[in-house]
Structures are given as structure tokens and as C-alpha cells.
């Protein structure tokens, strides 16, 4: 009888599977992504390596010495640490962070615009106290521009009512407003000393959300040639909530990580972060195989560093705010070993 190995489901709960079952999970995960994204499955040797990682009984796993990668963050600090800048110092001095991020708890460029002066002051203080790179991060968050939170029509209500043209017009209006807000906030924070800007969960509200991000990045790159710009995605497929939007001739709806990476670097980003969401009812092994299969093609087209998103609920990491380190470390190592990413 095969030994059962404690592993995790996508919600973080423990489950015991045999090595044979883990192999099946990995094979099904890569097949699911390959079918969905029309990309190659992981190779047999890659699946075998993943199996060794997941079939180990060790509490923790890690990359080989010498294979370490840069860690970038979206959201650095938690209230127990004291002030936001205190938290950044602790990340530098106590947590071995390669970089850190100043952020507002209302993680949206639209919201930050109203308090940007205070954020600039916080960035100035952070730059006076921290040596590692400090970037500023928030989300494009296009949904905030639709009523009742914003001035534009609500495409989530217009689309089910079959008001397609009105829904598209509302999104196009929202794009214009969002671009102005992102350019304003990002420019202000860069001028206050930020080492870079992070556009986190780009495309969360669909193709219009991603278009707004790309247009903002393009304008910022032209205005600030030395600005570090990270574009982190929201999902493995860009939803076509508009459906007809293009960036330099590339239709945004339906883009997978490879296409997302192409448009991000074309816009002027210096770091691209692919994101693949977790299925909480499948195993972490299944989710990691699926995520790696989705992300792998973008490694071939990337001219800029690729930092895979491996936070809560993405990249195979369980959808739980208090993820077990046995699962997180396996996801971390798998991304580095299989994808050869530039960072996480």
C-alpha cells in the first residue's frame, strides 16, 4: 500500500495523497491549462521534478543555493508592525526583503489621488529611512469609476440588460479618467522619491482596466525614462468586458500571460507579473502545474524581468490569508526551478 503524504488543497486545508495521486494531480493540472490556453503541457522531466517537490514529506523546501531570485512585493506591512514606514524598515532589517512597497490601505489609484500629498510625505520619510528599493503600489481599479462609486455608467448593470454600446462607452469614458488619475499619482510619488511604481491586478475589471494601465504606463515612461514600472496582472485570461479594445493593434480581451507580457513591455514596463488564480477545491499540486503551464510561454517572449505572482490565491499558493509554509515554499521553489523566473 502506498504511503500517504500530507499536502494541501487550494484553500490551504490539509489532505493526504499518495505519490501516484500527486502525479495524477500534476498531470491533470498541466493538461487543464494546456487545453484552456492552447499552450504546451509541461515536459515529463518537469512534471517529475514537481512530483519530487510535492511528494516530499519535508515541512519546507527551497531552491538550490545560487538559484535565488529577487522578491518584489505588492503591499508591504501589517498593522502590528507600527507605522507604514516602520514596517518597511522591518522588512529591510528583519525580513530580508529585496525590495518593499509603500501602499495605502485603500489600494486604488483613484482613492489615493485624494490623499496624494500625504502619500508623498510618507514616501519621502520612507526614502530617508530605507536603503532597499521602495516602490509605491495600488490598483488601476477601473470599477471605481462606474456608478454609484464614480461618474460613468455601470457596465456590470448595462451588459446584462443588453445595452452593449452604452456599456462600451462607459468603459471608454472610465479609461480616460483612470489614466489621468494613475499618471497624476504615479508621477507625484516618483517625484517624491519612489524607486518605482506598481500597477497591481491590472485587468481586474477586464480589457478596459488593462488598457487604462497600459496607456498610463506609456505616458509615464515617456515622462520619466528612469521610472521603474511593475505591471502585475489580475488573472490568467483578460476578460472581454468591452471586447473591442486594442493596444497598438493587439486585442486585449482574451490575452493570456504570453500576450499580457508582450503588451506590458511594449508599453514600457520594467517588470511583468503574471497571475494565475487558484481553484480552491483542487490540490496545490494541481494548481501549481496549471499555473506554471499558463505562465511558461511568457518566459520565452519576455525582454524584461518576470516576477510570478505567488501571493494568497495566485500561482498555486492557497487562497488563505495565513497560508501554510509547506505549501508556499513548494510554490516558490516550483516557479524558480521550472520557469526560471527573474523574481517573485
Amino acid at each position: 500500500m502506498e504511503r500517504r503524504i500530507v499536502t494541501r488543497l487550494g484553500d490551504g486545508s490539509a489532505v493526504a495523497l499518495t505519490r501516484s495521486q500527486l502525479r495524477e494531480e500534476l498531470e491533470e493540472g498541466t493538461r487543464a491549462a494546456a487545453t484552456r490556453a492552447r499552450v504546451p503541457e509541461l515536459r515529463a522531466d518537469e512534471l517529475e521534478h514537481l512530483l519530487d517537490i510535492f511528494a516530499s514529506g519535508a515541512r519546507f523546501t527551497a531552491v538550490d543555493i545560487g538559484d535565488e531570485v529577487v522578491l518584489s512585493f505588492d503591499g508591504t506591512g501589517t498593522p502590528q508592525q507600527g507605522s507604514r514606514v516602520d514596517a518597511l524598515v522591518q522588512y529591510e532589517q528583519c525580513l530580508a526583503a529585496d525590495s518593499c512597497e509603500l501602499y495605502h490601505i485603500d489600494y486604488s489609484y483613484k482613492a489615493v489621488k485624494t490623499v496624494v500629498g500625504g502619500e508623498q510625505q510618507a514616501m519621502k520619510e520612507a526614502q530617508e529611512r530605507v536603503i532597499i528599493p521602495v516602490h509605491y503600489g495600488a490598483q488601476p481599479d477601473l470599477g471605481r469609476y462606474s456608478c454609484p462609486d464614480g461618474p460613468c455608467g455601470n457596465w456590470s448593470e448595462l451588459l446584462p440588460a443588453m445595452h452593449i454600446d452604452e456599456a462600451r462607452a462607459a468603459q471608454e469614458e472610465a479609461v480616460e479618467l483612470a489614466v489621468e488619475d494613475m499618471v497624476h499619482v504615479a508621477g507625484a510619488l516618483f517625484e517624491a522619491g519612489a524607486d518605482g511604481l506598481n500597477f497591481d491586478t491590472a485587468g481586474a475589471a477586464g480589457d478596459a482596466d488593462l488598457l487604462a494601465t497600459l496607456l498610463a504606463v506609456e505616458r509615464l515612461r515617456a515622462a520619466y525614462p528612469a521610472m521603474g514600472i511593475m505591471v502585475g496582472m489580475a488573472a490568467e485570461v483578460v476578460l472581454g468586458t468591452h471586447g473591442e479594445l486594442e493596444f497598438h493593434g493587439t486585442r486585449l480581451a482574451g490575452l493570456k500571460p504570453e500576450g499580457q507580457c508582450r503588451v506590458a513591455q511594449e508599453a514600457g514596463a520594467t517588470i511583468f507579473g503574471p497571475a494565475v488564480n487558484v481553484n480552491t477545491s483542487r490540490s496545490v499540486a494541481w494548481n501549481v502545474a496549471r499555473a506554471l503551464t499558463f505562465m511558461k510561454p511568457c518566459m520565452d517572449v519576455a525582454r524584461i524581468p518576470v516576477h510570478a505572482n505567488v501571493g494568497m490565491g495566485v500561482g498555486g499558493v492557497p487562497m488563505n490569508a495565513f497560508s501554510p509554509v509547506d505549501a508556499v515554499s513548494r510554490c516558490s521553489r516550483a516557479c524558480v526551478d521550472i520557469l526560471k523566473v527573474d523574481g517573485l
Binding site: F60, T61, A62, V63, D67, E68, V69, V70, L71, F73, T76, Y91, E92, L95, A96, A97, D98, S99, I132, V310, G311, M312, A321, F322, S323, P324, V325, V328, S329, S332, R333, C335, V336, L344
Partner: peptide
């Protein structure tokens, strides 16, 4: 669970 785990597993030690 997140920055510590990743830093130990694969980070460059800042």
C-alpha cells in the same frame, strides 16, 4: 506565511 516563507525558500536575502 508569505514574505518569510518566500524569502527563505527563494529570495536573495535583501
Amino acid at each position: 506565511g508569505m514574505p518569510v516563507a518566500h524569502a527563505v525558500a527563494s529570495g536573495m536575502n535583501g
